[in-house]
Design a protein around this nucleic acid. Structure first.
Lengths: 138, 138
DNA sequence: TATTGTTATACTCTATAACTATA
DNA sequence: TATAGTTATAGAGTATAACAATA
């Protein structure tokens, strides 16, 4: 094992590349990014959440939300609703179509996660580095 | 734990964000990116490696190497040497300065990795998800 | 003054395709 | 034809700063 392969930083990067690749393939024809999927999932669990809180949940800055929610809105998956009490905040909800798509994506995601857990079960358990490299597909 | 927090994909993204953040802070005033550090480390272990093989090692496309090695060369950390036998390939070597900086960065990196391993040892061991969230700092 | 959402801007990371020089 | 490196280009993803509307 090279120096780099013994570092958590490098191993986690390679693992994330492989995991995200598998998710993207799992979503297939729906062409939904992991960021969009995350927003759909959070909104489903927190109907009416605003964009600032969404950004906080995802650990990104507020402006990041604008293009993501724009695209979800344009695709008819989510909607912005101006709050009755506070005209500044937009409350995000899933449309019926968004809820339906999320169910499909969650099923695909479950298959993906099962594949990843299967990789982890392969070989002998041996700590985080070994786990990360298993996720990376090695 | 929310639906998203139970997914490997989301946990690994948050973990990578936290790990890379810690590395960047560890490198501090040297302002070296993880990609540059990776190249320095691979070249140190494989003096004379060419750019195509570097790209292969890192799992990125060849054009990615150009700006990275440009910057290392401009900073006086690495050098391109046209191969004597094959005029197409450039053999990458570290300069004395590059070797010296790499030693410093490796020391900083060791402290970083110790911090990460300390996080992993916190609490009860409970599989990859728990490990990833520990890396993420939660 | 402070906050929500937005716009403007820029920078990094990344890939693909096409080019050049060599083989 | 094929390969190594490069250039050109484009598209994500991200952040910061400044703005408009609202509180």
């Amino acid at each position: 094992m090279s120096y780099l392969e013994g570092t958590i930083g490098y191993a986690i990067r390679r693992a994330q590349m492989a995991v995200f690749d598998d998710i993207f393939r799992a979503f297939g024809e729906h062409k939904i990014t992991t960021a969009e999927f995350s927003v759909l999932a959070i909104v489903a669990d927190n109907p009416g959440i605003n964009q600032a809180d969404l950004a906080l949940s995802l650990g990104v800055e507020r402006p990041r939300m604008v293009p993501i929610i724009n695209r979800l809105e344009e695709s008819g998956l989510a909607s912005r609703l101006v709050d009755g009490q506070d005209g500044r905040t937009r409350r995000i909800h899933l449309t019926r179509q968004g809820e339906k798509l999320l169910e499909i994506l969650k099923a695909r995601f479950a298959e993906h996660q099962a594949r990843m857990l299967k990789r982890l079960r392969a070989g002998t358990p041996d700590g985080i580095l070994s786990d990360l490299w298993k996720l990376a597909g090695r």
